[in-house]
Simulated assay, not measured.
Amino acid sequence: MTIYSLYIYDRHCTCVYYQDWHRTKLPKPAAEGGILPAVSHQVYPQPQQDTISTSDPISTYSSPRNTLSSSSGVVVAVNEEQRTTTPQPPQAQSGLSFDEEAKLVYGVVLSLRNMIKKLSGKDEQFVNYKTSTYKLHLYETLSGYKFVMLSDPNADSLRFVLRQIYSGPFLEYVVRNPLVKMDSKERGIDNEYFRTSTDRMIRGLSVFQ
């Protein structure tokens, strides 16, 4: 048994946080404008590097290492991080981009939740469902945030884990943090302390392998 991924959605149906552990196929980066910043750097759109045309008379340097333009004398800032970044080994990716995947996950949760309320009444709650390949767990807060976790289909209910994430790292490092903007119309809620604390909590579970 194991845990695959964690999604957090706000009351506006927007994915504001994502983290994964044992996924064999990672989602493709989201399309430009399809995801908020500070959701996850792994699925945020990669910046497009500007290509310099040799036929352009304005561009007189051919390498990013040349920081001095001979024609204007203007020093061009160079991003050292791009130079020193070690190339990562390629990983298998799923056919969907992350923004499409996040919408599908939320659509499933919303549809099943509405169906259960209509069939069983308002007091009935949707907490999880199981397929042959995964199990989806849901915890919804009074403020409208939805914590969704995908795990092995044989795992027990992990709703208590989602509740611990909300009452622990989420309240401590997101809600009570004055530096985090709780306006999901502009950006997500990812920060180093919340991600590290959540990762430590998940890895400490007996279901995690």
Rank of each mutant, 00 (worst) to 15 (best):
M1C: 09
M1T: 14
Y7F: 15
Y9N: 08
C15P: 14
V16Q: 03
Y17L: 04
H22E: 11
T24D: 09
L26V: 15
P27Y: 02
G33D: 03
V39R: 02
Y44N: 06
Q46L: 12
P47T: 01
Q48P: 13
Q49I: 04
Q49C: 04
D50R: 09
D50L: 07
T54K: 14
S55Y: 07
P57G: 09
I58L: 10
S59A: 15
Y61N: 15
S63P: 15
T67R: 01
S72K: 02
V74Y: 08
V78I: 00
N79K: 09
E81D: 15
E81Y: 10
T84C: 12
P87R: 06
Q88M: 01
Q93A: 06
L96Q: 08
L96H: 06
E100N: 10
E100C: 03
L112Q: 08
R113C: 12
N114F: 05
E124L: 06
E124I: 09
V127K: 12
N128S: 14
K130H: 13
T131Q: 00
S132D: 04
S132L: 00
K135M: 07
L136A: 05
K146M: 06
F147E: 09
M149V: 06
S151T: 14
S151F: 12
S151K: 11
S151Y: 13
P153L: 00
A155V: 14
S157Q: 13
V161R: 05
L162T: 04
R163S: 10
I165V: 06
Y166D: 03
Y166T: 10
S167W: 02
F170D: 07
L171Y: 01
E172W: 07
V175W: 01
N177E: 02
S184R: 05
S184F: 02
E186Y: 11
R187C: 09
G188A: 05
N191L: 07
Y193A: 06
R195Y: 10
R200P: 03
